[in-house]
Simulated scan of single mutants.
Amino acid sequence: MISSINPTVKAGAILVPGVLLGLMFDIFTPLVYLIFIILVTFAFTDISLKRWLLIFSPFVLFIVSFSWTRMLYTSESFQGGAILFEFWYFQVTTEALMVSISLALRSLCFIALSLLFILTTDSTKLMLSLMQQLKLPPKITYGVLAGYRFLPTFKHELEILRQAHRIRGVGRAKGIKGRLQQFKRYSIPLLANAIRKAERVANAMESKGFTGDRNRTHYHEMKVRRRDWVFFGSMVGALFLTVFMSYYFGYLNIFGREIN
């Protein structure tokens, strides 16, 4: 399962194809790799299709509007080919259409890769892996992890504040001035509670011997195993195989230049 892959190696397996896909301006390469990512997502994870679609679908609507704009306002270097149709004072050519579709597919690949990483990675293991494999300072990693853990409590405290205001007869604010006052009523108590919690966490960490030293032992050791490198090689290798297929069939286009 992908959830057991070392987070640092997994991040590399997501980042490298994402960067290389940004160089591809054809349709074949991102389309085939997008299909590969989707197959990997549902074959080697326990992510439900419904949950994945609920997160993925809003991005599709944004990408469609973005690619439509890209097609209308394409640069002069991508305005070649036959004119497909004219819209107001815009002329949409075959090359502009291909570039916009390629942009949409590349964006979908980025989103699918991001979801594959986010939905299969535990935040605690990610911070531990960054500290042990990439040697990030413990002060940064534990600080980020502590802040991430506080987010659900802030949401709960905000709901308590809202209920307390309703009990005391304070209704929902109207207008810009009222909303600013409401923001002040909410932000000051939340900030005060955050400072108190930060002090308690800092005191607790110091009492447990936390000094921020890099040379320390870990209760949970994150190791890079053979399966991690197999996953990395599979994700990157699949992209290079897709690029080779695109080149073989004459579709490969890098930065607007056809590679035949």
Results as ranks from 00 to 15, higher is better:
36 F>W: 14
186 Y>L: 09
39 L>N: 09
30 P>E: 09
61 L>Y: 10
161 L>A: 03
233 G>E: 00
254 I>T: 04
252 L>A: 06
19 V>H: 10
231 F>A: 05
67 S>Y: 10
203 N>L: 15
137 P>L: 13
133 Q>D: 03
73 Y>K: 13
67 S>R: 12
19 V>E: 12
233 G>H: 07
113 L>F: 03
209 G>R: 15
175 G>K: 02
12 G>K: 12
172 R>C: 04
33 Y>E: 05
130 L>D: 00
233 G>S: 06
86 E>I: 11
69 T>K: 12
159 E>R: 10
125 K>C: 01
135 K>Y: 04
221 E>P: 07
123 S>M: 06
69 T>H: 15
166 R>Y: 02
184 K>T: 02
15 L>T: 12
33 Y>C: 14
94 T>I: 13
42 F>M: 15
128 L>N: 02
71 M>C: 12
177 K>H: 01
41 T>W: 13
187 S>A: 11
90 F>N: 01
140 I>G: 04
36 F>Q: 10
91 Q>E: 02
202 A>K: 09
228 D>H: 06
6 N>T: 13
245 M>N: 03
140 I>P: 01
42 F>Q: 13
125 K>S: 03
1 M>L: 13
149 R>A: 10
258 E>R: 08
222 M>I: 15
78 F>C: 03
45 T>K: 13
58 P>D: 08
89 Y>A: 05
46 D>T: 15
53 L>E: 04
124 T>D: 00
18 G>R: 14
10 K>Q: 10
164 A>P: 00
73 Y>G: 05
216 R>N: 03
62 F>N: 09
205 M>G: 07
39 L>E: 08
235 M>N: 04
207 S>L: 15
21 L>D: 07
235 M>Y: 09
5 I>G: 04
220 H>T: 14
208 K>T: 05
24 M>Y: 09
37 I>S: 08
